[in-house]
C-alpha cells in the first residue's frame, strides 16, 4: 500500500510541477485506490500542498512573479473563506462530501476540455488568416 501511495504522490507532484494542479489527481486516487475517507483524502491534499508549493513560491518570488499586495489582499479573504469552507466540510457526512467533490471535479474537467478545444479553434483561425 505504501508503494501505491508513493506512486500517487510522485504523479501528483509531477502534475503540480507542471503547473497543472496535483490535487485533482491526488484526492480521487486516495479515495478510490487507497480507500480513504473523503475527509482524509482532502486533508492529505491540503497538508501535502504546503511543503510542495513552498519551493515553487520561493522560485516564483525570485523571478518576480509574485505580486505581494495582491496576494495579501486575496489571502485575507481566502483565509476567512477557508475557515467557513473547512468547518462546513467537517459537518458534512463523507458520502455527501464525496459527491460534492465529484461534481466539482466533473465541472473543472469539462472546463479544461472546453478550454483546450477553444485554444485549438483559435489556432486554426489564426492559421487561416495567415493563409489569406
Amino acid at each position: 500500500m505504501a508503494i501505491i501511495l508513493a506512486l500517487i504522490g510522485l504523479l501528483a507532484g509531477i502534475l503540480s510541477g507542471l503547473a497543472l494542479g496535483g490535487g485533482t489527481l491526488l484526492v480521487p486516487s486516495l479515495v478510490i485506490l487507497m480507500e480513504l475517507t473523503q475527509h482524509q483524502a482532502q486533508a492529505i491534499a491540503l497538508a501535502a500542498f504546503l511543503p510542495i508549493s513552498t519551493v515553487a513560491i520561493v522560485t516564483h518570488y525570485k523571478n518576480g512573479n509574485v505580486k505581494p499586495r495582491l496576494a495579501l489582499l486575496l489571502a485575507s479573504g481566502a483565509i476567512a473563506g477557508a475557515l467557513v469552507g473547512a468547518t462546513l466540510a467537517a459537518h458534512i457526512p463523507a458520502p455527501l462530501l464525496r459527491k460534492i467533490f465529484g461534481l466539482f471535479l466533473v465541472f473543472m474537467g469539462s472546463y479544461e476540455v472546453y478550454n483546450h478545444r477553444k485554444a485549438i479553434s483559435k489556432r486554426k483561425v489564426q492559421k487561416e488568416r495567415k493563409k489569406e
Binding site: G23, Q42, G81, A82, L83, L88, A89, I100, F101, F104
Partner: peptide
C-alpha cells in the same frame, strides 16, 4: 470564494 472552495473540497 477561493477559500470556501479550498476548505470545502481541498483542491482547486
Amino acid at each position: 470564494a477561493t477559500g470556501l472552495v479550498n476548505g470545502l473540497v481541498g483542491i482547486g
